[in-house]
Amino acid sequence: MSSVEINGLIKKHDKLFTENLPQCRGIQVYNEKLLTINGKEYRSWNPYRSKLAAALHKGIKNIRIQPDTQILYLGAATGTTVSHLSDIVTNGMVYAVESSPISMSKLLKVSTQRTNIAPLLMDANHPQRYKSFVPIVDILYQDISQRNQAEIFIKNMDSYLKKDGQGILMMKARSIDVALQPKKAYEQVGEELKKQGITITDVVELSPYEKDHAVLMATW
């Protein structure tokens, strides 16, 4: 694991923890362990549950998340990863897009106390539909298991990611094409992004935490 230099993120016994928001003290989002050190409460960040934690364990470098970072999060699901990002960006905002109403009900519960989350029940295939909510962001994070995940990523980068901002794409090989070797599937996504003038800075596989998944870091 690379050294941890993100605000509010600590490493203890080889496990990652984020500092819980003061208004959320004692609240667990997904039955994670809570730890108190020097009067501050920390929530353990499980790499088997959150792909971003897995990516950090696998040593992706240079994720630039500061307390005032604005994040557009596509595929928020029930808010596991979103809650940890919300711990980190105390002065920023996480715009959490999710299209399933059933996942949304859990996400809303998580967001109730976390005023730096803006939950949006919308389809990431149509980035224009949340235009009035989401400003230009510093980080675009996408975790959507769809065949056209690269296309969705490009569309959203076009509309929302600032120049020299960071794009983080969680690729699921099995969604892109089940018949393809995972490595080939990642390459295929990479090619598609490059065609649009996007620079890929890093690709790391997420095994053993997730099977046939990889994280892709991009910028432009």
């Binding site: 905002m93 109403p101 949304m104 009900s105 996400l107 809303l108 967001s111 109730t112 005023t115 730096n116 989350i117 803006a118 939950p119 949006l120 029940l121 909510f133 400003p135 230009i136 076009d158 509309s159 929302y160 990611l161 600032k162 120049k163």
Partner: peptide, 30 residues
């Protein structure tokens, strides 16, 4: 469009308000 950025705080609108609005809208839609 990805160069210009309006901050709600600069115009007297808080982030908490955005949080409230989006919560309400998502709840209704859900």
């Amino acid at each position: 469009f990805i160069q210009i950025h309006m901050k709600p705080e600069d115009y007297g609108f808080s982030r908490e308000l955005l949080h409230q609005l989006s919560m309400k809208l998502a709840k209704e839609k859900m």
